[in-house]
């Protein structure tokens, strides 16, 4: 599915799909999408370029190239995933490759916010559970898993893990308010009077 499936829209309560495991801490956004691919005015073509240099180095054995992983939509990672540059090109590239949700030990802050802003849920759990999940997935690469955002569970047949996501992100995803623009604009009717009270916008007179 993945690559051709529609981009996230509206409320997101569950993701169903196959999983892809990417091992390693501190995987930065320069690796997810090398800077030379940022020379563009649209995100459209980024899907093919995700992890371009790592994939080239591994000559077909990178998790994003393995035949068995094609069509996967849930990415399993370790600690501090997405650190470094703020480029939204990184989650955009993952999304355009087919990723619709990420489960990891922890995420870098800007990356997490960028994912949320485009409707990609990032859920966390401790390292022992990530390892157990990865082991289970390796046994059954062809199988679909269910990520239930409301219940914060990740499951398949009789296997089930409880994951974490902060309440704010959960509400945004399940209500469809992860696309924040209209919400923000609706609170802007009194922006001018708010601004006039900021010292640096009123010649420091208040």
């Amino acid at each position: 599915m993945a690559k051709n499936s529609p981009f996230p829209k509206g409320p997101i309560s569950q993701i169903q799909g196959r999983c892809l495991i990417l091992t390693g801490d501190d995987i930065d956004t320069d690796r997810i999408i090398p800077a030379r691919f940022l020379r563009c005015v649209s995100f459209k073509l980024l899907g093919d370029q995700v992890f371009a240099d790592d994939r080239k180095e591994l000559k077909g054995s990178h998790p994003f190239d393995l035949k068995s992983n094609q069509g996967a939509s849930i990415l399993i990672v370790n600690k501090n995933f997405g650190c470094g540059s703020s480029r939204e090109h990184a989650p955009q590239a993952l999304m355009r490759w087919g990723i619709r949700a990420i489960i990891g030990q922890s995420f870098a802050e800007i990356f997490y916010g960028n994912c949320l802003a485009i409707g990609i849920p990032c859920l966390t759990t401790e390292s022992s559970k990530i390892n157990a999940i990865a082991e289970e997935i390796k046994k059954t690469t062809e199988e679909c898993w269910l990520l239930n955002i409301n219940k914060k569970t990740f499951s398949r047949s009789n296997k089930k893990w409880q994951l974490s996501i902060d309440q704010r992100s959960l509400d945004m995803l399940t209500s469809g308010r992860w696309d924040a623009t209209s919400q923000l604009i609706s609170n802007c009717s009194n922006l001018k009077s708010f601004m006039i009270n900021l010292p640096y916008l009123n010649n420091f007179s208040k």
Partner: peptide, 21 residues
């Protein structure tokens, strides 16, 4: 002072605000 992604750049252009914790 903080870095933001492109969706938030859009939000700031449209509302001069961002949603943040």
């Amino acid at each position: 002072a903080f870095g933001i992604g492109t969706s938030q750049v859009r939000d700031v252009l449209a509302s001069q605000c961002i949603a943040m914790n």
